[in-house]
Amino acid sequence: MKTQEELTEIVRDHFSDMGEAATLYVQVYESSLESLVGGVIFEDGRHYTFVYENEDLVYE
C-alpha cells in the first residue's frame, strides 16, 4: 500500500503533462489510505478536481 505522499506524487506526475501546476491540494477529510481526493490549479487558471483510487485517476 502506498503512502499519501506517494499517491500525491503519482497524481502530480500525471498532471505535469497538462502544464505548470500552481497548486495541488488534497482534501484530507475525504481521502484515505486507499484513495486521494483533491484538486489541481494550473498557472493558466484551469482547475480540476480528482479522485485517485486503485491506480485509477478520475478528474473533471
Rank of each mutant, 00 (worst) to 15 (best):
S31W: 11
G19N: 05
G19C: 10
A22H: 13
Y48K: 00
A21D: 10
L57F: 08
N54Y: 08
T49I: 11
E9S: 11
V26A: 02
A21V: 15
V37C: 12
L57K: 01
E55D: 12
I41V: 08
Y29K: 01
G19H: 05
A21W: 13
I41G: 00
Y25D: 05
D17N: 14
R46P: 02
E34P: 12
N54P: 02
F15E: 01
T8H: 05
G39H: 12
V26Y: 03
K2S: 05
E60I: 13
E60G: 07
D44P: 02
S35P: 02
L33R: 12
T23F: 14
K2M: 08
Q27N: 13
Q27L: 15
E30N: 15
G45V: 05
D56M: 15
V51Q: 04
V58Q: 11
V51G: 01
E6I: 08
E9D: 10
T8C: 15
K2L: 10
F42Y: 05
S31M: 10
E20K: 12
L24Q: 02
D13L: 15
R46Y: 03
V58D: 04
F15D: 01
T8Q: 09
G19F: 09
T3S: 09
L57C: 10
D13C: 14
R46V: 03
F42H: 00
D44M: 05
H47W: 08
Y52G: 00
S35H: 10
Y29E: 04
R46A: 04
Q27P: 03
Y29T: 03
E30P: 04
R46G: 03
R12S: 04
Y52D: 00
E30C: 15
E53D: 05
E9F: 07
E53P: 01
E55Q: 12
E43M: 11
V28K: 11
L33M: 11
V28A: 12
Q4V: 11
L36E: 00
V40I: 14
Y59L: 12
V11E: 03
G19K: 03
D17I: 14
Y52H: 02
S35C: 15
A22Y: 15
H14Y: 15
D56E: 15
A21Q: 10
E5K: 08
Y52E: 01
Y48P: 00
G19S: 05
D17G: 14
G38I: 13
Y25F: 05
L36D: 00
T3M: 03
E34H: 09
V37Y: 08
R46H: 03
H47K: 06
T49W: 11
L36S: 01
Y48V: 05
I10T: 05
Y59D: 01
V11C: 08
G45C: 08
E60L: 10
V11H: 01
S35A: 08
A21I: 15
A21K: 11
E30I: 14
D13H: 13
L36C: 08
D13A: 15
Q4M: 12
Q4L: 15
I41Y: 09
V11N: 02
E34R: 07
E5V: 08
E9Y: 05
G39D: 07
V51W: 10
N54G: 08
E6T: 06
F15A: 02
G39S: 11
L36N: 02
M18W: 11
Y25N: 04
D44R: 00
E53V: 12
V37L: 07
L24F: 12
D13M: 14
V58A: 08
G39M: 14
T8L: 15
E20Y: 12
E34K: 07
D44N: 03
M18P: 03
Y52R: 00
D13E: 14
D17P: 10
E6R: 04
N54I: 05
E43C: 13
L57V: 06
N54M: 07
F50Q: 00
E60D: 07
T49M: 08
L36M: 08
F50W: 06
V26S: 01
T49A: 06
E9M: 12
V40F: 04
M18L: 11
V51L: 07
V51P: 01
T49S: 07
L57I: 09
E55H: 14
T23W: 13
L24Y: 08
G19R: 04
Y52I: 06
Y59K: 01
V51A: 06
M1C: 15
V26F: 07
Y25V: 08
E55Y: 10
L33P: 12
V40N: 00
G38V: 09
G19A: 05
Y59N: 01
V40R: 00
S32Q: 11
R12K: 10
Y29F: 10
E9Q: 14
S31V: 09
E6H: 06
R12W: 12
E5M: 08
A22F: 15
D17Y: 14
Y29D: 04
D13F: 12
E9L: 10
V28W: 14
D13W: 12
K2C: 13
A22S: 10
V26M: 02
S16Q: 10
R12H: 05
F42N: 00
Y25W: 08
I41P: 00
D56Q: 15
E55T: 07
V37F: 07
L24T: 02
Y59E: 03
G39K: 08
Y52T: 02
V11K: 00
E6V: 06
V26Q: 01
I41K: 05
